[in-house]
Amino acid sequence: MSGPKIIFFILAAAILVFSVMSIFSRRILRAAIYLLFVLVSMAGLYYMMNFQFLAAVQLILYAGGIVVLIIFSILLTSQINSTLDPPRKSHLLLGAVTSVLGLILGATTILKYSFQASASAPIGTDMRTIGRHLLGTGAEGYALPFEVITVLLLAALVGSILIARKPKV
C-alpha cells in the first residue's frame, strides 16, 4: 500500500466517522465541530486529487464561512448546558428505514453503472484556467457576472434585516 492510499483511507474514515458523530451528537456545538472535521477531511481529499483551488475554496467557504456562521448562531442562541432532546422511537425507526432504503438505492445505482476512464486529456485545474473561465466570454465563461448577481441576494438579506429589526428604544 502506498503513502497516498494510506492517507486516502485515513481521510475517508475520518469523513465517515465524523459525519456519523455529527448526526448523533446531542450537543449542538459538538455536532458543528464534527461537521467541520468532515469538511476539512473533504478538503484533504481534494488536495490529494490535485484540485487545490477547490480544496482552498472548500476550506474558505465551508470551514471558514459556513461553520463559523453556524457556531456564531449557536453561540447567540443556546446555553452550554442545553442538549438536544433524544429523538422519539418512531422517528428513530422511520429514519433508520429511510436511510437503509437510500443506501440500497445508492449502492445499486453505483454498482450497476460501469465506470470508464475518460479518454480525453484531463483538464488543467491551475489558477490560470479557472481565472480564464471565470472572466472569459467564450464557452464556459460568464461565471463572474453570474456570481456578481448573487450580490442581489445579499442586498435582499440586508434589506430584510433592516425591515425586520426592532426599532431602537
Binding site: 482552498a56 474558505i60 464561512g65 457556531i71
Partner: peptide, 11 residues
C-alpha cells in the same frame, strides 16, 4: 491556501 487555513483559527 494560507488565507483558507488561517480562517480556520477563528473556529
Amino acid at each position: 491556501y494560507i488565507l483558507a487555513i488561517s480562517s480556520m483559527g477563528v473556529i
